[in-house]
Design a protein around this nucleic acid. Structure first.
Length: 185
DNA sequence: TAGGCCATCTGGTCCT
DNA sequence: AGGACCAGATGGCCTA
């Protein structure tokens, strides 16, 4: 079909579906198309990056809100993302235990030992359920010292840094990065 | 300087 | 088709 343009004499109307533009023109078109495709892809990528950035910002904002309702000591301690999630998991568990125990006490039932805390994640970096962190909690000077102090009659003896009953602190993971690494225990 | 944490980019996949 | 979601890669910042 390209020969169709070589010979002027035979230049009749091109066959309906086999006609192709001259090579040079087609190459230019292809280049133009390639460039258009490139800019299209690029603009889509830029848009996608923008959305992704925004999505992550929203996710971080939600994480910050979650940090805001979690008790930490010192108060301005910023938990990492993974710490925030794990602590939230355990904090919810501890609060549930508080309600459960309070309810039991209300019905005069002898409080059984609290249930084993859930395990939100068991990698080596998890500090939430370690005995050291729990003993650190109970050794807080602002906390009640004797076992009698851990009773559940109102008002509940609370830990200044956690706001949770002592028994829960001793039995369940509820500390967030406490004590600070450099703090004397 | 190594390791941890984080933000961002990127391509793939799934969903509407 | 376009957006949401996800996971891997990368580089910057900070701390021990």
């Amino acid at each position: 079909s390209r020969d169709h343009f070589k010979d002027k004499s035979s230049r009749v109307s091109p066959p309906p579906f086999s006609w192709e533009p001259p090579r040079r023109r087609r190459g230019r078109c292809r280049a133009r198309n390639q460039a258009a495709l490139h800019t299209l892809r690029k603009s889509r990528r830029v848009k996608a990056n923008d959305r992704e950035r925004n999505r992550m910002h929203n996710l971080n904002a939600a994480l910050d809100e979650l940090r805001g309702v979690l008790p930490t000591f010192p108060e301005d301690t910023k938990l990492t993302k993974i710490e925030t999630l794990r602590f939230a998991y355990n904090y919810i568990w501890a609060l549930s235990e508080t309600l459960r125990l309070a309810d039991q006490r209300l019905h005069k039932a002898p409080p059984p030992p609290p249930a084993a805390p859930p395990s939100p994640g068991s990698d080596a970096g998890s500090w939430l359920s370690t005995a050291s962190s729990l003993s650190a909690c109970t050794s807080n000077p602002s906390s009640p010292a004797t076992s009698e102090d851990y009773g559940y009659g109102p008002p509940e003896p609370l830990f200044a840094c956690h706001g949770l009953p002592g028994e829960l602190l001793r039995s369940g993971p509820c500390c967030a990065r406490y004590p600070p690494a450099d703090a004397a225990v």
